[in-house]
């Protein structure tokens, strides 16, 4: 039983990272209706930049973390301006393919600078485990989980009360109406890409502190799809809950499959089997907006 509790808790931690990546995905989808297949590579870029600043340039962790965030803002701006803005009004398949192309470009750039080896972050947090519900858990896991919660609280408040957050929600709701009320749609698009890049690079830095980073990190971007489909493609709360749920689900399913059936590697695929089931039963997810069509 303790084994499953352990799986549950590590599922929550990995799930909180999925939530962060899903949050970035949902922000972009909500504001610009672009499906971003490069979310995982944006996470990877952030993780590598933070690694380079901490280890290769020797900066203190906090400073390099802040610089990474600044870099992500720049990355988000560049991607939006150079690649996504020419694609406004193009069919959905072209937009999907442009983000797929972007993901392989980002991956190649990272590979060019840092190669394919696993890189390990220096220890930032103490290593002796803390006890959570009677299970020893590494402090970095707790920190990751708390940081994700904090970010979600911050973004919820941002979207509810701040001027820009309200403008972003208005744009998501109806672009023309928002524009006629004096909201600069282009700025909103740029802002949403910036936020998405920042959020996912935070996820990358957390992940780097847990496992170290390598070129396969971008694969994580595929895992956001089960999370966002479960939560609903355009719901922030859905992204949070969907990410956590998928993280726990795949860990527990993987453990169960190994224990009961002796199947290896089931963890990777369970989330996608679940995804197909959700799409069959409830395609708009738990909290997504339903598009009602009468035929």
């Amino acid at each position: 039983m303790e084994f499953y509790l352990q799986l549950f808790i590590s599922g929550l931690v990995i799930g909180s990272i999925y939530s962060l990546v899903a949050l970035g995905f949902v922000i972009i989808y909500k504001a610009t209706k672009v499906v971003n297949f490069a979310q995982g590579e944006m996470l990877m870029a952030g993780a590598y930049v933070c690694f380079a600043l901490t280890v290769q340039a020797g900066l203190p962790f906090i400073a390099s973390f802040l610089l990474t965030l600044a870099f992500s803002v720049l990355l988000g701006l560049c991607i939006e301006r150079l690649i996504l803005r020419p694609m406004i009004g193009e069919p959905i398949i072209s937009v999907i393919m442009v983000t797929i192309g972007l993901s392989s470009v980002l991956k190649a750039v990272v590979q060019f600078f840092w190669g394919t080896d696993i890189r390990v972050y220096p220890e930032v947090l103490p290593t002796e485990p803390v006890m959570v519900a009677g299970v020893p858990v590494a402090p970095v896991y707790v920190a990751a989980f708390l940081l994700s919660l904090l970010l979600f609280a911050a973004f919820t408040l941002f979207f509810k009360y701040s001027r820009y957050g309200i403008a972003m929600r208005a744009t998501a709701f109806d672009q023309q109406a928002a524009q006629s009320m004096g909201i600069g749609i282009k700025n909103i698009f740029a802002l949403s890409w910036c936020i998405a890049a920042v959020v996912s690079s935070i996820g990358g830095v957390i992940l780097g502190n847990i496992n170290g980073i390598n070129i396969q990190l971008g694969q994580l971007g595929l895992k956001v799809f089960p999370a966002v489909i479960l939560g609903g493609l355009d719901s922030l709360l859905g992204a949070a809950i969907g990410g956590l749920a998928i993280g726990v689900l795949e860990n527990v399913c993987g453990g169960l499959a190994k224990d009961l059936l002796g199947l290896g590697g089931f963890r990777e695929v369970s989330a996608f089997i679940f995804l197909v089931l959700i799409l069959m039963v409830k395609p708009y997810g738990l909290f997504g907006t339903r598009h009602i069509e009468r035929v």
């Binding site: 690649i83 694609m87 393919m97 442009v98 192309g101 392989s104 190649a108 590979q111």
Partner: peptide
């Protein structure tokens, strides 16, 4: 390095085609 960049060049070609020659 060019061989390592194969996938990246593939992505770049794809992006450029989509933007300039849809």
């Amino acid at each position: 390095s060019l061989m390592a960049m194969k996938e990246g060049i593939f992505g770049l070609v794809l992006v450029l085609f989509l933007i300039f020659e849809p």
